[in-house]
Amino acid sequence: MPALTKHLLFARFKRLVHGLTRWSLALGMGWVLVMMILTTADVAGRYFLSKPVPGAMELSSFMLAVFAMLGMAHTHQRGANVRVTMLIRTLPPFFANVLVIISTVLTLQIVGMMAWYAVRMGLEEYHANATTDALSIPLYPLEFLLALGTLLLGLEIIVNLGDAFYRLFAAKNQG
């Protein structure tokens, strides 16, 4: 039964993607606490010891990047990316699903392009030796991190697309 195999494959793919998303969230989300402690230490050091943490700002921006880029897939999976659902909620399921598929494909296009080009820019930046000012941390890993984050995001969007197709055929079979 090829249909069933396909079904199982998709379910397995979906589980895999959600698993990756959870891991990525787990690796990223704690950095906001580190950022909080580091900045507080920086302020305290500046006042009580006249000794700010060197490069605290740079470290904070790096942590922000890790925190947010690794959280993109999770945010999308939980439907937190704001959208207008007024039309989709009022249309019959079949048409609503067609619209969802269109917008999901367009979203996938932009996210996929970003993942691919971030790798290219990462390589370019690696050769240009760009760094931060105070701590001379190389900047190219940020581009690769963006590529990773958008890649995971893209996988979640493919899951959305699969779900939408399932719903589309379900709606068709009923109607």
Partner: peptide
């Protein structure tokens, strides 16, 4: 490059660290 720069720039702007800090 404009697309990638816009996203990368947003995620690494120091002044934006204020957003997750206020939320938490």
């Amino acid at each position: 490059p404009t697309l990638v720069r816009s996203f990368n720039g947003t995620f690494t702007t120091y002044s934006f660290t204020v957003i997750p800090l206020f939320v938490i």
